[in-house]
């Protein structure tokens, strides 16, 4: 049986059994072999993961990275995104067609617009307690006072109980002690250009600042492939490490060729 199927089956069983055992472990793969190896198989489902934007202007990259992780983790289940109003003012309102372009069908999304930090935490916790959800994404802006160690513990506990992965996007904030299982710093990265120097797929420079389960402090440049729903590791100079499919396709190259190269 393929590994993905087995994993889905495990989740199904754990879902049916929920209530009997409060904490269910389980990981989802990021799709990038390098990243998964460092994470010892992937990210945990029932846990809090923090994703910091390196600078305020990197917020779209941080939320894009988070959405991509949600796509990986949620397995076509409904998703709740709780966003503080100020994030919309500062970094733009969530745009449904753009989510579809990243592989997250807007059908599956419930968006909660929270007035302030405490409201974000409250809604996030409420949503994390709902086991049928595929993932919860919360985005407080800056460093609200309410978001202390206790608050993050509550969130982590709620996620652990329901086994729903909880991603917290932070912009305009510095990492502080929290109950998060992993902590990431995301910076936008130059994409692999398409024909005629057109901007390519979303690319991120991600740094694993902390991983309770393993080593931290490593950096990767990743590209999100929406068609395959997977991350791909790019080399240091923005060249795909494995396939090399995307670089400067000669003008007039047919789509078939692209597909073939990518499949390598």
């Amino acid at each position: 049986m393929p590994k993905a199927d087995l994993e889905a089956l495990r989740r199904e069983v754990s879902r049916l059994e929920r209530g009997s055992s409060p904490i269910v472990s389980g990981r989802f793969s990021t799709g990038s072999a390098e990243l998964d190896k460092a994470l010892q198989g992937g990210l945990n489902h029932g846990a809090l993961h923090e994703i910091f934007a390196a600078a305020t202007a990197d917020e779209p990259s941080a939320s894009g990275f988070a959405v991509a992780l949600v796509v990986r983790a949620s397995e076509e289940r409904p998703v709740v995104w709780v966003r503080q109003d100020f994030a919309g003012v500062e970094a733009g309102e969530v745009y449904a067609p753009g989510l579809a372009e990243l592989g997250l069908s807007p059908d599956r999304l419930i968006l909660v617009r929270a007035r302030d930090g405490p409201a974000v935490l409250r809604a996030g916790e409420e949503a994390s307690r709902c086991p049928p959800l595929g993932a919860v994404l919360i985005e407080p802006w800056g460093a609200p006072k309410a978001l202390d160690l206790v608050a993050s513990r509550r969130l982590a506990l709620a996620a652990a109980r329901s086994n729903v992965p909880l991603f917290m996007v932070r912009a305009g904030a510095q990492p502080a002690s929290s109950a998060a299982l992993t902590r990431w710093r995301v910076r936008s990265a130059l994409s692999v250009a398409l024909d005629a120097e057109a901007p390519g797929r979303p690319a991120f420079e991600v740094e694993l600042l902390r991983d309770r389960a393993g080593a931290a402090g490593r950096k990767w440049t990743l590209e999100w492939d929406r068609d395959q729903r997977t991350f791909r590791h790019l080399g240091d100079r923005g060249v795909p490490a494995l396939s090399g499919g995307m670089v400067s396709l000669p003008p007039g190259g047919s789509p078939d060729e692209v597909g073939e190269r990518r499949a390598v």
Binding site: S63, G92, Y95, L102, P199, R201, P202
Partner: peptide, 8 residues
Amino acid sequence: PPLRPIQI
């Protein structure tokens, strides 16, 4: 690549 932005 995505032709529409994630946030507007």
